[in-house]
Protein backbone atom coordinates (compact mmCIF):
# COMPACT_ATOMS: atom_id res chain seq x y z
CA UNK A 1 0.00 0.00 0.00
CA UNK A 2 1.46 3.36 -0.93
CA UNK A 3 1.68 6.13 1.62
CA UNK A 4 0.67 9.70 0.98
CA UNK A 5 3.48 12.22 0.81
CA UNK A 6 2.64 15.90 1.06
CA UNK A 7 5.09 18.25 -0.64
CA UNK A 8 5.88 21.90 0.02
CA UNK A 9 5.45 24.34 -2.84
CA UNK A 10 9.18 24.53 -3.44
CA UNK A 11 9.42 20.79 -4.19
CA UNK A 12 6.27 20.42 -6.27
CA UNK A 13 7.85 21.41 -9.60
CA UNK A 14 10.30 18.54 -9.11
CA UNK A 15 7.51 16.01 -8.63
CA UNK A 16 4.99 16.71 -11.35
CA UNK A 17 3.51 19.82 -9.78
CA UNK A 18 1.10 18.18 -7.36
CA UNK A 19 0.83 18.86 -3.65
CA UNK A 20 0.42 15.17 -2.80
CA UNK A 21 2.18 12.15 -4.29
CA UNK A 22 2.20 8.46 -3.42
CA UNK A 23 5.22 6.35 -2.60
CA UNK A 24 5.87 2.81 -1.45
CA UNK A 25 7.95 1.68 1.50
CA UNK A 26 7.98 0.26 4.99
CA UNK A 27 10.49 2.81 6.26
CA UNK A 28 11.00 6.46 5.51
CA UNK A 29 14.22 5.57 3.70
CA UNK A 30 12.29 3.26 1.36
CA UNK A 31 9.62 5.87 0.81
CA UNK A 32 12.26 8.46 -0.06
CA UNK A 33 13.99 6.03 -2.42
CA UNK A 34 10.69 5.35 -4.15
CA UNK A 35 10.09 9.08 -4.46
CA UNK A 36 13.50 9.51 -6.08
CA UNK A 37 12.79 6.58 -8.39
CA UNK A 38 9.62 8.32 -9.55
CA UNK A 39 11.00 11.86 -9.44
CA UNK A 40 14.80 11.85 -9.73
CA UNK A 41 14.88 15.61 -9.33
CA UNK A 42 13.95 15.23 -5.67
CA UNK A 43 17.13 13.37 -4.79
CA UNK A 44 19.22 16.35 -3.68
CA UNK A 45 16.35 17.76 -1.67
CA UNK A 46 15.74 14.55 0.27
CA UNK A 47 19.20 13.04 0.75
CA UNK A 48 22.66 14.29 1.60
CA UNK A 49 25.50 12.96 -0.58
CA UNK A 50 26.14 10.49 2.26
CA UNK A 51 22.59 9.19 2.03
CA UNK A 52 21.27 10.75 5.22
CA UNK A 53 18.16 12.91 5.43
CA UNK A 54 18.77 16.40 4.10
CA UNK A 55 19.36 18.71 7.03
CA UNK A 56 17.26 21.54 5.56
CA UNK A 57 14.19 19.33 5.43
CA UNK A 58 11.53 18.87 8.09
CA UNK A 59 9.81 15.51 7.80
CA UNK A 60 6.72 14.60 9.74
CA UNK A 61 5.13 11.21 10.03
CA UNK A 62 1.52 12.18 10.71
CA UNK A 63 2.00 14.67 13.57
CA UNK A 64 5.45 13.56 14.65
CA UNK A 65 8.87 14.86 13.69
CA UNK A 66 10.83 11.89 12.32
CA UNK A 67 13.96 13.11 14.08
CA UNK A 68 12.38 11.53 17.15
CA UNK A 69 11.30 8.38 15.34
CA UNK A 70 14.60 7.16 13.96
CA UNK A 71 14.90 9.56 11.02
CA UNK A 72 15.17 7.52 7.81
CA UNK A 73 14.66 4.30 9.76
CA UNK A 74 11.21 5.43 10.95
CA UNK A 75 8.59 2.77 10.27
CA UNK A 76 5.88 3.80 7.84
CA UNK A 77 2.48 2.17 7.47
CA UNK A 78 -0.16 2.38 4.75
CA UNK A 79 -2.39 4.70 6.78
CA UNK A 80 0.42 7.15 7.44
CA UNK A 81 0.99 10.52 5.87
CA UNK A 82 4.47 11.86 5.36
CA UNK A 83 4.69 15.64 5.25
CA UNK A 84 7.79 17.35 3.90
CA UNK A 85 8.48 20.97 4.75
CA UNK A 86 11.56 23.09 4.24
CA UNK A 87 13.50 24.15 7.29
CA UNK A 88 12.68 27.80 7.87
CA UNK A 89 15.65 29.56 9.38
CA UNK A 90 17.92 32.55 9.08
CA UNK A 91 19.69 35.12 11.11
Amino acid sequence: MPVEVRLPTVLRPLAGGGAVVKAEGDTLREVFKDLVRQYPGLSESLFTPEGDMHRHLNVFLNDDDVRYLGRLDAKVGPADTVTLMPAVAGG
Binding site: N58, D63, D65, T83, M85, A87, G90, G91
Partner: peptide
Protein backbone atom coordinates in the same frame (compact mmCIF):
# COMPACT_ATOMS: atom_id res chain seq x y z
CA UNK B 1 14.14 26.83 18.11
CA UNK B 2 17.57 28.45 17.79
CA UNK B 3 17.00 30.41 21.03
CA UNK B 4 19.37 33.05 19.74
CA UNK B 5 19.62 36.82 19.44
CA UNK B 6 21.29 36.40 16.04
CA UNK B 7 19.65 33.35 14.47
CA UNK B 8 16.20 31.89 14.15
CA UNK B 9 14.76 28.53 13.27
CA UNK B 10 11.01 28.15 13.13
CA UNK B 11 10.17 25.34 15.53
CA UNK B 12 9.25 22.45 13.21
CA UNK B 13 6.11 21.56 15.15
CA UNK B 14 4.91 25.15 14.87
CA UNK B 15 5.60 25.04 11.14
CA UNK B 16 3.46 21.93 10.75
CA UNK B 17 0.68 23.39 12.90
CA UNK B 18 0.67 26.60 10.89
CA UNK B 19 0.62 24.74 7.59
Amino acid sequence: AALSARLYTVEPKDLLRAD
